[in-house]
Design a protein around this nucleic acid. Structure first.
Length: 407
DNA sequence: CATCCACTGGAAGATATGGCGA
DNA sequence: TCGCCATATCTTCCAGTGGATG
């Protein structure tokens, strides 16, 4: 029997679940928006802008609200011709000093082809170049520094910029800084004088709870998903998973998007909780593999030492044993081994990344030390390593040992 | 109760890379 | 070319840790 049937895809507009999508309205952040608008009011009134500092976990709407409000602000301010507003936005994730942030700002402001290189100048020279560009803009300039915590305690720029006018570096331009941080402890790392100025207005974005996430998901799903694509309990499940973990809307949306993709790949039309569960596992794996890809050669070798020990069922495992394993891996790969202290540093880094876990042993006369083990599934780890390291024979033999030991 | 083990983690300094300006 | 600058990654050195041991 032949039959025609309308084919409904899962997605109507997948982008609406994506990173770069800018929704027309922001859900569940009314209070924060209220306070934020108040902090921005001086710009409208023609005064010098406040410096604003936002903090909260990733995916709780800091960047989304900022983009949304600054767009509103730029539109609404056109009504007043005595205010001339420019906005410069910069994500500092990959920039880990004031110097690099300043270089990036200069390059953003300069026309294509006249960018400056990222080393070589004394710091103050770069700052002066920045002042020159800012002065050329004139009026009010709002500089948004997203993920500003990545500069750590090298905060000279955050000291300089708010004082540029008072110090005579700027005359025609009033600068307002908006710093966005995912790290609660970032403020404490800053020079107290920087804290004073940068945190003039401070806005905290709390994590979303499950009902809030559900509302956000529902409003996005209306745009993104086809009718009838949402199985029962799916939004609730995504919301619950994300709320339990991080309270991040980003995470909840990623879950829904990936679950949708998985559904589509299986030629289904309705996302089920099972699809969400698979999406969760896949996202977790991607996160870990991403972390591993960014390791240096010796970071990878240190991790591979743990993987190898795991294959031999020798974990948890103390630093000295891991170091020995690491040295043999270095030998067989023709890399010269680093000192134990350095490997210890790499192991610490891996712990920070959540790839390894360590528990302290206080065994008195035999010393205090950490025992490390993998904090991710063995399979994910070895697969990522296989992607990354060029140690095929070693990885092959580790795999063999692992299967012998039934790991 | 002092001592000691076998680390951890902070700090300073070395080395290498890549780039500026004269 | 030389002297400087910023940065990443390592090495070397060392104080601190806290329960077991004598």
């Amino acid at each position: 029997m032949h039959r025609f049937e309308r084919k409904e895809n899962v997605f109507r507009n997948k982008d609406a679940l994506g990173e770069s999508y800018r929704p027309e309205t922001i859900e569940e952040r009314d209070e924060e928006i209220e306070a934020y608008m108040q902090a921005l009011q001086p710009v409208v009134d023609g005064w010098e802008p406040n410096n604003i500092f936002l903090y909260g976990n990733t995916g709780v709407g800091k960047t989304a609200v900022t983009n949304y409000l600054l767009e509103r602000l730029q539109e609404d301010i056109e009504a007043y011709d005595d205010v001339d507003l420019s906005v410069v936005s910069l994500n500092c994730k990959t920039l880990n000093s004031s110097y690099q942030v300043a270089v990036e700002l200069v390059n953003d402001l300069r026309p294509v082809g006249q960018e400056i290189s990222s080393t070589g100048y004394p710091q103050q020279t770069v700052f002066n170049k920045l002042y020159k560009e800012l002065e050329a803009l004139g009026g009010t300039v709002i500089i948004v520094l997203d993920e500003i915590d990545s500069i750590g305690d090298r905060d000279e720029l955050l000291y300089e910029l708010p004082r540029a006018r008072a110090n005579g570096n700027l005359e025609d331009t009033a600068v307002g800084l908006i710093g966005i941080s995912n790290d609660f402890t970032f403020q404490d790392q800053l020079d107290p004088r920087v804290q004073d100025t940068l945190c003039e207005r401070e806005l905290q974005f709390p994590p979303y709870d499950a009902p809030e996430l559900e509302n956000i998901l529902r409003s996005r799903a209306e745009v993104a998903l086809a009718e009838g694509a949402i199985g029962s309990g799916v939004l609730e499940f995504c919301a619950a998973l994300a709320a339990r973990d991080s309270g991040s809307a980003r995470q909840a949306l990623d879950l829904l998007r990936l679950a949708g993709e998985i559904t589509e790949n299986h030629d289904h039309k309705e996302i089920s909780q099972d699809h969400v569960e698979r999406a969760r596992l896949q996202l977790e794996q991607e996160r870990v593999q991403q972390g591993m890809r960014e390791l240096t050669t010796h970071g990878q070798l240190a991790l591979l030492a743990v993987v190898s020990k795991t294959a031999k069922r020798d974990t948890p495992c103390r630093t000295r044993e891991l170091y020995e394993e690491y040295v043999t891996l270095c030998d067989s790969s023709g890399t010269s081994a680093l000192s134990q202290r350095s490997v210890h540093n790499h192991l610490s880094d891996l712990r920070m990344l959540g790839i390894l876990s360590a528990h302290e042993n206080r065994s008195g006369s035999r010393g205090n030390y950490y025992s490390y083990e993998l904090d991710v599934p063995f399979e994910s780890a070895i697969e990522a390593m296989a992607d990354v390291v060029r140690l095929d024979t070693e990885i092959g033999s580790i795999r063999e040992i692992a299967s012998l030991n039934d790991v």
